[in-house]
Design a protein around this nucleic acid. Sequence first.
DNA 1: ATGTCC
Length: 474
Amino acid sequence: MDLNRLDRVTETLWQIPPSGAMRVPGRLFANEELLRDMDDKVYEQVRHVASLPGIVGAALAMPDAHSGYGFPIGGVAAFDPDAGGILSAGGVGFDISCGVRTLHTGLKTLQLAEIRTALADRLGQKIPAGLGREGHLRLNTREIDAMLVGGARWAIEQGYGEAADLDRIEEGGVMTGADPDQVSTLAKTRQRGEMGTLGSGNHYLEVQRVAAIDDPVIASLYGLAEDDILVSLHCGSRGLGHQIGTDYLKRMLAEAPGHGLRLPDRELACAPLASDLGRAYLGALRAGINCALANRQILTHLTREVFAEIEPAARLSLLYDVSHNTCKEEEHAVEGRRRRLFVHRKGATRAYGPGHPSLPEALRPAGQPVIIGGSMGTSSYILAGRGAEQAFASACHGAGRRMSRQQAKRRWTGRAVIEELAGRSILIRSPTLSGIAEEAPGAYKDVEAVVTAAEVNGLAKKVARLEPLIVIKG
DNA sequence: ATGTCC
């Protein structure tokens, strides 16, 4: 990105002053090196988002931002329903409510040594992964609708997990306001066999060790200590979320002229919050959120079964489950006034600060766990949210791509990546090799630089750094 | 991200 077009506010905060159709400024949270390396398209996309009706404050890009469909991935934008604000399918992303759940195992690094290969093999067998891969259960129409309303609570009622899990899931495991009637039959049909599956792309299940503690006080509140073994699951709403995105993008594009919307880019198709289409998408989006929550819950159950088989001493309990592809109705202070806003976070994580009433009691003094998945073979981070209003209580979500999937495939082979990781004692289990090349660590930004930029800007605080030991990939 | 184009 050409830095000459930006105003430098601080070392790690840059501004795009409003011009043309922009209603608010654009703000990028990143250091100079991350910004120089960032796709020029991010600049254009932030400007486009800043021109949408009802946007409040600024259009934001997190330090891991890269170009996406319409909105950048790593983008945050808040809209006021009472000021003509909109909902955008491209502002949420196709993988509705994609997110990460991290579990404690109760095990330490030394206990893992002799079971590591068996654990990798068994997880690889039991966790369905890969494009179009179906899972262990098949739902009928009525069960799909119950799942879309009940989220993780539905999954627990079906026997996948424990009631205590709900406390550690965003929204208590159930997103209210879901409307299965606004989800197409095709979307539901695609999902019938895909519950409890990982999917492909950057989705994964990792067994990790806590390699370093950055904040001992918060780590202790989170129940984290050095050499603890954790499991992290990164996945979303599979075919259902993708189909909802496709369906509503088409409708939003068709109906935009009727709503008087002039779009700077057709990929920014959207609908006013105060419209039938806006309300329909909101109901479908919330159903998609429940699908992702139920999916991660079922995968948690499968993971528990594998650990129980191989190491009966293990006890898998949730640290937290948080999405990074979503739009949520939240209250935020804007220039000293509380306003009800719809915050789009696409490749960005909610990062509520200490004391936020929606956090479980045990975590409330520390702030919300913000789970940052690194690329395959590099570190992940647990951060603590700071509730920074300049970012509508948001932070980054991962390392963020620095290279397209096509570029990555030209540069690496899956086999070479697996061998390189094996050299560092990281075990990979995946049904495909081509997917591995696309996810080569070199195709991603430096996750350490990303989380540092988030921390310096006061969005979230580093708590623990995690290193992968076993990776199950789609 | 995605039965990578109904």
